[in-house]
Amino acid sequence: MVLTDRERQTLQRWQRATSTPQALALRSRIVLACAETDDDGLPRTAGAVARQVGVTPETVRKWRARFVRDRLDGLGDAPRPGRARTVSDEQVTAIVRATLQTRPTNATHWSTRAMAAKTGLSQSTISRIWRAFGLQPHRSRSFTPSTGPVFADRVHDVIGLYLDPPERVLAVCVAEKAQIQALDRAQPVLPMMPGVPERRSHDHVRPGTTALFAALDAATGTVIGSPHRRHRTIEFKKFLAKLDREVPADLQVHLICDDYGTYTTEAIKKWLPAHPRLHLHVTPTGSSWPNLVERWFAEPTAGRLHHSAQALERDIRAWIADGNDNPRPYAWAKTSDEILQALASYCRRIKDSGHC
């Protein structure tokens, strides 16, 4: 039995790979051993190969004959007989079409029970079909299309700062997280003891709230934050003044902000010309996703209870300082053209879309 170079390489790869099924690896060893010759240069017998590999001579003859007849394809398992299909292709197509194009009468989405009652099939059959086609009717995602007239221009502006910022420029993402609540238990917490878990009352009180203005340097992951009891224009101006003081004087500061009233008031527009190194860049209307500080806000800021708003603010400052000791950069992956192309493709799939 003579092997081609490709066949020998394939069999050796199947024999060595840890992901190869054990049965296929054994058959590869049998065929490779059969392709060798003995000391006299003659083909090896089935018995000699069987002793080397650790199988019976009948097994060697079987796979040697299968390989001679079908080559590499002959080493796979033949189809096994089983029960005939009870669900036709037409039924599968009807289930998929009904899942995608219809809704049940008295529910917001299809369940396996409801679809089984409609089609007369079992719930397990419906579940298998949905898994095969990746259908999950119980899941949904919400989105808000931007209605701003300069959507594309703002996307290019903001994404350009992430991917190709100018020299001597610090691009920071600025936003606020309002109504951060200080929560405390209504009764003192009983500490944990040997054999006794910590015990706490079910209800809690709200001693106060605070708002957090934050500026994230996406390139380094560092944050400049400032908690305030209110989130008006005057608090935002104080935060900008702090940002102006803490950023090195030789850098231009480009602020990426949401299209929010606090950031675009007349008072802010008059304040910015007096601080010419601060430049404002606004994300598209109704689209805060280009603002990376929103991702930072999603991380937990304070996991402990607080008996007052002052204690909450102390914990927020400590949490920011701790994060700045071990910052994690935020990398933007897609270009603005890729984002706009993906959005246009999505809008084309929506009937009567007037947003693209």
Rank of each mutant, 00 (worst) to 15 (best):
G120K: 04
P145W: 04
T37R: 15
T37L: 15
K242T: 11
V158T: 08
G120R: 06
L212N: 00
D258N: 11
R139N: 13
V155M: 14
T37C: 13
K177F: 00
A211T: 15
L42V: 09
I268A: 05
D164A: 15
A114Y: 01
V96Q: 05
A132E: 14
V87Q: 01
L75P: 08
S88K: 02
P149F: 01
H306A: 12
S336E: 08
T105V: 15
A344G: 07
R295H: 12
Q181P: 04
T93A: 15
P188Y: 08
G303Y: 04
R199K: 08
G286K: 06
H138D: 09
Q123I: 09
M192T: 14
A302C: 15
L24C: 02
G41D: 11
A186I: 15
K238F: 05
K62N: 01
T335R: 03
V158G: 02
T112S: 10
P276W: 06
Y162L: 09
C173Q: 09
R85K: 01
D244M: 06
D5R: 14
D337V: 11
A309M: 03
S288D: 02
R328Q: 10
A342Y: 01
L161S: 06
W296P: 01
L42E: 14
T283D: 08
R131C: 12
G303H: 10
V223I: 13
E235S: 10
C34P: 01
E167T: 15
D153A: 15
S353K: 01
S288A: 14
N106Q: 09
R51Y: 03
G286E: 07
A342R: 09
T335C: 03
H281L: 11
V282A: 02
A311V: 05
H307N: 09
A333E: 14
L32W: 01
T59H: 08
L305C: 14
G41I: 14
A211V: 12
D325I: 12
T59Q: 11
T265E: 02
A186S: 14
